[in-house]
Design a binder for these strands. Structure first.
Lengths: 199, 199, 199, 199
DNA sequence: CATGAATGAGCTTTCATTCAT
DNA sequence: AATGAATGAAAGCTCATTCAT
């Protein structure tokens, strides 16, 4: 009884990866609209039909490329809430300061009307996981009684993450201790105050 | 010939306005790349060379369109610092929630590599003025001794403004009392605390 | 090894039929150029190389599909020449008025320069047999002395068959008694006249 | 008061002609589907946008090309009905025997489902005018009392015109006296018979 | 033998820009 | 100054055909 194999020529497993990598790079470098399937094919070293066989349109290709994104950083857990927050935010900061760090975000926003799948996936793969990490840290803090009862965790997350966007938009560079300064202010705003304990 | 005049047919100043309005609208609706000079000409009711006579390229046209942007809201000054902040932020929020409110921001970010003038002008015309308004409120507060000495005003501005970006990215809608919640947290973080005075 | 067999897996004869049926349907529906081998493969439930293994090119596939065509109607023989003619022509008419009834004819004409095999086979399988049926009826009539000596049978066939093409081209619909009217006129033109016998 | 001129660069009037001529030639030579806008542009010596400025799609271009078709032959009127008919039919025959004489007809038939404008215009420009010429001759004959009362003129036209299609389909060549033979038969079929007068 | 994968060449259409009046 | 016409270069997508299993 021979081993059952799939019929037909098998796909080169590296091809898929190369196409998506190329698409993602060009998406970052050029934005969705400037990214051409031709350029992706050239950079991936395949022909265009090889791409269209896998994804039926350029939008699907871009979507698939964004779907491969994922946060790799493990959640921080040092015991100190502010330190955990700073650590997560500094990872975030590093990703923003990479070349084209903000351009993918720009593209998904700019294409929101024309290609809404992009921002949906960007949310799902990048935005939400990072927010969840921050939120988890804050939830642990709350469980330990470190936060004032009325502290709004979701607002806190928005303040922390958003400050980087705001700063980037204002200046395109971010000073080294930025994350720490943010957390300093925020922590005074949400933590139980009497024992204004330094961390 | 007493009066000095330029020879030839004079330019219609209303034309310029119409072109830039059309360009700005399309820039918001479609993004830089999808915006076509043809479409701008059509919407402005002029021909393409009329545009190219004024701005030598599509990038210059887009740049000029963004240059016309300006914040119209008068700075708040109610006497209460938190109230002033909330007022400015709610204006900001309204502009974000207009149709295509975020898409221009997305476009300038996405085009940062290819057309860096766009983000420069966007900063100059929109981002910086709004930050200045917030900063002024905080400076007044500081002068009145409301803030802790170590409060970093720039960080505070980033926290406030950025929170809206972060929230929009996460959900594309912003709850009504959002600005107030943000200011609540921030104010605890930067104001002199002993007399935790309600505002 | 007494029984002589071909080595290897034998071809499924039903496959051949399915491919040709699909090809013929698409040829009629879309014309030669719009018919894609992909679509044929899909509709036949086979892969493209399965097709290319049997016919070396798209032209050969189309040719083979047309080769399968054949007239199925039995020749008429009622004893009355005009009735026989009308019967054959009404069969013809029905085939023309089927969906895409004329499109295959159009395709073979349109492709005459590029793929001349098509029209050759169409002649051989469809045109000639039907003409032969009409011709046979007329030959029998001649043998019975019904026709004038100088009557040109080939011309008569052209007149009868062609009238349908002309009518279709002019209007795309054919009135019910059309065949009878044609035969009426023709019969007066070729039959021995003195005893203008009604049929 | 200066003479009012149209603004803008005027179109080269020869361009339109050249494009349509090229389109028509390629339509005949290759059929609608094989005809590429690229090839038309090349043959006409213009760029593709020059074509697309005038006709918004390939179908519109082909339609316009067919719309330029017209019968140039003046209607015959020799006094003898059969001679008039023969004359018109021999003109028709000449047009069929030109290179690609039948291919345009084939194309409009083949495209009937996908591009129905083509056959509509072909009818309007070519088919109908020729039929009208034949019909006029027969109407004059009827007015002179040459035809039997019950003669169906439309059927007669179909018989005459169609015979050429049928013949071409059967053999792709047409003998010299074909038209005369057809008229011979038809005339016996529709003319008043007693004085079987030779013409 | 039959399959799914791959390809080079082509398709229609659009765009930013320049020309000629 | 302003127009409509023209263009070279690309874009997204499809096709007939061949390859590798």
């Amino acid at each position: 009884m021979p081993v059952k194999t799939v019929p037909g020529r098998p796909r080169d497993p590296a091809t898929e990866r190369r196409i998506l990598d190329a698409a993602l790079r060009l998406l970052r470098a050029d934005g969705y609209n400037r990214m051409s399937v031709d350029a992706v094919a050239l950079e991936a070293g395949v022909s265009k039909p090889t791409i269209y066989r896998r994804w039926p349109s350029k939008a699907d290709l871009a979507t698939a490329a964004i779907r491969t994104l994922q946060l790799l950083e493990p959640p921080a857990n040092t015991g100190s809430t502010p330190t955990d927050l700073v650590q997560i935010l500094e990872n975030f900061c590093r990703s923003l300061l990479r070349p084209n760090g903000m351009s993918l975000l720009g593209t998904v926003l700019a294409e929101e009307q024309h290609t809404p799948e992009l921002i949906q996936l960007f949310r799902e793969r990048i935005v939400t996981p990072r927010r969840a990490m921050l939120r988890d840290v804050l939830l642990r803090a709350k469980a330990r009684g470190e936060l004032t009862p009325q502290a709004d965790l979701d607002c806190a997350v928005n303040l922390l993450v958003g400050a980087f966007y705001a700063r980037y938009l204002a200046e395109a560079k971010i000073p080294p201790a930025f994350a720490r300064h943010l957390v300093d202010i925020l922590w005074r705003g949400i933590a139980v105050q009497p024992e204004r304990k330094p961390y």
